[in-house]
């Protein structure tokens, strides 16, 4: 099969790395070649962060370029807008409705665009929007918003749901398994 590309975007500190770790593990189990590229260091301090997940028969490049992503999983609305050009035409954007103001907006030097997701909906993309933070809180903790978003993405990945449940079970700390599975289910149903 040709290489599939998934972009995970958000704000440094939102927990984007766990989602990519789980995906990578799952695609390896399915027998694919996999590359996952992460950002560490300075950008993690509240900056815009991106993780690239690529899988297929043979993957060379670790990064995804404009117009190449099959799916974008976004933890925050403004980041959905920022990374939109990386999506293939007709691709899937799974976006949390969460809004986090960047410093230029806090300082009044720039405006946070209004109705971002409504404007994206008019484009040639398939938009799935959900309040991942709220769903995570109802699962037990804001920390599992990443698993809610993963749950929402799984419907588009064509891999058996039980497989993901096994991967979550074997990866997250034992004490948090039930909360994470609940979060996964809430995202899957969203």
């Amino acid at each position: 099969m040709s290489v599939k590309n998934i972009l995970i975007v958000g704000v440094g500190g939102q927990g984007t790395l766990l989602a990519s770790k789980l995906m990578g593990k799952c695609f390896v189990e399915e027998g694919y070649d996999v590359k996952v590229s992460e950002v560490h260091g300075m950008s993690q301090r509240g900056g815009s962060v991106v993780t690239y997940v690529r899988y297929g028969e043979k993957v060379y490049s670790p990064v995804i370029e404009k117009g190449e992503a099959d799916i974008i999983i976004s933890f925050e609305q403004l980041e959905s807008a920022r990374w939109l050009p990386y999506l293939k035409k007709g691709g899937v954007l799974i976006s949390s409705t969460q809004r986090i103001d960047p410093m230029p907006v806090i300082m009044g030097k720039a405006a946070y665009p209004e109705n971002i997701l409504a404007k994206i909906r008019e484009k040639d993309v398939k938009l799935v929007e959900l309040d991942a933070l709220d769903l995570a809180l109802s699962a037990g903790t804001a920390k599992c918003a990443n698993i809610v978003l993963l749950g929402a993405a799984v419907r588009f990945l064509g891999i058996d749901k039980d497989m993901w449940i096994d991967i979550i079970r074997s990866t997250v700390p034992p004490k948090t398994v039930e909360t994470n599975l609940k979060a996964f289910e809430l995202g899957y149903m969203a």
Binding site: G46, G67, L78, R82, L84, P102, P113, K119
Partner: peptide
């Protein structure tokens, strides 16, 4: 690809 049509504040 498609783009968002407004200015996007830096983060």
């Amino acid at each position: 690809f498609v783009s968002f049509d407004e200015d996007i504040p830096a983060r």
